[in-house]
Design a protein around this nucleic acid. Structure first.
Lengths: 206, 206
DNA sequence: ACCTGAACACCGTTCAAGT
DNA sequence: ACCTGAACACCGTTCAAGT
């Protein structure tokens, strides 16, 4: 009953629509947005700097303002692009799995590995209070919590219980990715990690 | 069996040692540190700006650099002061309670209300990846997790189980304060909140 | 349609000079 | 011992001028 994720998940690469072979000398707004996504995945929201990105892209920073009115607009466009291309691909993949408990397990599986989209989510949580970031996390979180709530309801919980449980599990998830990223005592080797996941599964079973 | 917290917890005010009545015209490093603590509690780490704080304190920003070598050094001093004065006072209060389960309940109680120290902790979690903030959260988190681990062990859990449970509860706590602060669907009225706390207590019972 | 280059504001940092 | 004032670096933002 093991489900193998598709290659675009394993490769941290989601299919792009265009991307012609010869690099065009002039840049589009999407070029800037994609560069911003990569920058966020590598070093977080705060590392998105117009001046240094312009240097990397081989233009002056002044040219940036032809494409976007501000740095925040660039971040917003980058996150929107990421939601539509990368997050949506994951949801489509998950929705293709019939069995609800297999779907939930696979959701955990994707999150637990260091895929690019998970890395970006970790960076977003770090910048939780940024006005452009908050609504993105809000949308993603609402969808994930709802996803879990429905699974718990299908397992026979009352509506209220299922909601509380989903919110609690999601809180633990958001807290853990932060603590695990930053705190020494929360970094675990493979055995500890599996024991911890076992404990979580047992504690949060319907 | 209800325990009333001491006035310094309810008033969000912890006793200060000196503080003479006539405001001295010259500033000390502690004056800057205390101003930084208040600023962090109000608007977070990123709002600590040398220039605007100098304006508020009635000096030029140049004078700041007589007291501290950098902005980061100010933040470090502020957080150190907060740990020693405000956090330590809470721990001393908690350690004065004999019954372990009453202590744990009171710990949750203090955290659940919007005291200044809790506000500051929320701000620190927002700036989790700041190199000056990380070790502070690390110290506080290690102590709290250890506190809970011991309680679970005293309740008969194995060492490993108690550790996993403590880490899981703490993860949920850290995640919840973030989600509750920022997400609309996680804001609860009094009834919802009590039902949620009930659910947590039941789920995480030893 | 896209980019340059120079300007400005804001803030962290330095330092010689003042009291 | 503590502070001022002017300077500089860095980065976001604007805009007239170029192709």
């Amino acid at each position: 009953m093991k489900i193998n994720p598709p290659s675009f998940v394993l490769n941290n690469q989601f299919p792009r629509e265009e991307e012609p072979a010869p690099r065009k000398s002039r840049l589009s707004a999407d070029d800037w947005a994609q560069a911003a996504i990569d920058q966020i995945a590598e070093a977080g929201i705060s590392s998105v700097a117009v001046e240094s990105m312009a240097r990397t892209l081989g233009v002056t920073k002044g040219s940036f303002y032809w494409h976007f009115p501000s740095r925040d607009a660039l971040i917003a466009a980058a996150l929107s692009r990421w939601e539509q291309l990368e997050m949506e691909a994951i949801w489509n993949y998950l929705d293709g799995i019939e069995d609800p408990s297999a779907r939930l397990r696979e959701m955990v599986n994707i999150i637990a590995h260091e895929y690019k989209s998970h890395k970006i989510f970790v960076e977003l949580v770090k910048a939780f209070d940024h006005p452009v970031v908050t609504p993105v996390i809000e949308r993603i979180s609402a969808r994930r919590i709802d996803y879990m709530r429905r699974s718990y309801e299908q397992s026979g919980m009352t509506e209220q219980e299922a909601m509380n449980r989903a919110q609690l599990v999601y809180s633990a998830y958001v807290g853990f990715i932060q603590l695990n990223t930053h705190l020494k005592h929360m970094r675990m080797d493979r055995d500890q990690y599996h024991a911890f996941v076992e404990h979580i599964v047992k504690t949060f079973a319907p």
